[in-house]
Amino acid sequence: MPDIIFRDGSIRQNQWVVVPRPDSGESLNIPGHQRALIPADLWLAGREHFVGREDIGVWFDSHDEPEILADHVNELPLIAVNFPKFSDGRGYSIGRLLRERFGFKNELRAIGDVLLDQLQFMKRCGFDTYELRPDKDIRKAARSLNFFSQGYQAATDTDLPLFRRRAS
């Protein structure tokens, strides 16, 4: 499995596999010996069964509604959000909602078409790990995460938009 980038730019081994949504009629195929991310709605459907398991997390697709897990986010060790195409910006809103609206505290991961030039936006929207697309040079990630030393807006990373910092 490709390595994972952390928000501080460090690179670590990936422990999680993404289990794709099963075709209709098929059942979910969770690998026995590995930590697994399953579609969020399926986790919810089998919640009594999954809750408390440190080796099961969920993933949202970009058109999914994170609202379905509103009261349960912190029952999960990891939530991933899929960017099916890097230019599909819905995942940024999902990230902020999970963090700022539903108070998710554990690991939030960007998966899918994750490229270098979007990493800092993801970081600002609450993502703390990133599964870079394998053809991209992971050594350049630290620089991409920190192109900007500050931003104008409040977001998940700061409660202080520039207009509030200027005032203080």
Binding site: G89, M122, R124, G151, A155
Partner: peptide, 11 residues
């Protein structure tokens, strides 16, 4: 200022 490099609304 608010819209410049807004992290949520670049795509």
């Amino acid at each position: 200022q608010w819209s410049t490099f807004h992290p949520e609304f670049a795509f």
